[in-house]
Design a protein around this nucleic acid. Sequence first.
DNA 1: GTTAATGCAAATCTTTTGCATGCGG
DNA 2: CCGCATGCAAAAGATTTGCATTAAC
Lengths: 137, 137
Amino acid sequence: MRAQTTDFAQALRKAGLRVTQQRVVLLSKLMEAVDHPTAEDLFARICAVDDSISLATVYRTLSALEEAGLIRKLSFESEPARFEITPTAEHDHLVDVDTGEVIEIASEEINRLRSELVTRLGYEIVSHHALIRARKI
Amino acid sequence: MRAQTTDFAQALRKAGLRVTQQRVVLLSKLMEAVDHPTAEDLFARICAVDDSISLATVYRTLSALEEAGLIRKLSFESEPARFEITPTAEHDHLVDVDTGEVIEIASEEINRLRSELVTRLGYEIVSHHALIRARKI
DNA sequence: GTTAATGCAAATCTTTTGCATGCGG
DNA sequence: CCGCATGCAAAAGATTTGCATTAAC
């Protein structure tokens, strides 16, 4: 725990951001999340342990952390945005249309093909995100 | 022109929707669009030729047409939704982060791999959409 | 001490909805 | 005619912002 808190502080400093209690708590809550929480979700989870945070700060912090590349924003269809700690390996998301469950899927093969295709068009990928809506067979 | 209008009417009827002037105009404007317009964009383009439409109707029509499978809704990051006529071949979108330009990209290879991967997880794809943010090299 | 970050509340932006009216079948 | 579709205006939901205050460095 202690070590992790320090890590968050270092990551924030490295990104040129001040180390505030709110930012550290938000990062830790996002790190321990097994789902992909929305800003409201995070706000509720943080309030449970420390109610000295406002929703506005959650949004501002999420923006700052995204800009710094520490977290990733996921835009699902007609839903509030969801967030995750920036993944080490690029992956996509499969949403179960019946249950709403989100599953992370990755394929080196697909990533490689996509990268080739984009390069052939004269571009370099800044980021990508594939959203697959699917149903259990 | 005449033939196309008829086509729109038929498509609407087949979807069990009433054929109204607003729906036909919206479909034709979306069909002739080379970009991926937002609801506001479409509203403006329709108003230019027929100002007897409201923004609410644009939204309602877009929802109805999407539900009927005639059009596809694209959710880009932190932007209003964009729409396109349902493509015959599945494709993804590359957004030029500098210019905002949207390019359609498709790869049978990627589609096949993705499909296999999802099947292996015990799911069948309902829809999918990959968004690649990229920059010219 | 400076400056950036925060909390609060109000504002903004996109999208949806209630209701009376009008048009399509 | 009947019922769905429309226009208008108001509401809703997510996110952003102005401003005074507080905390980080």
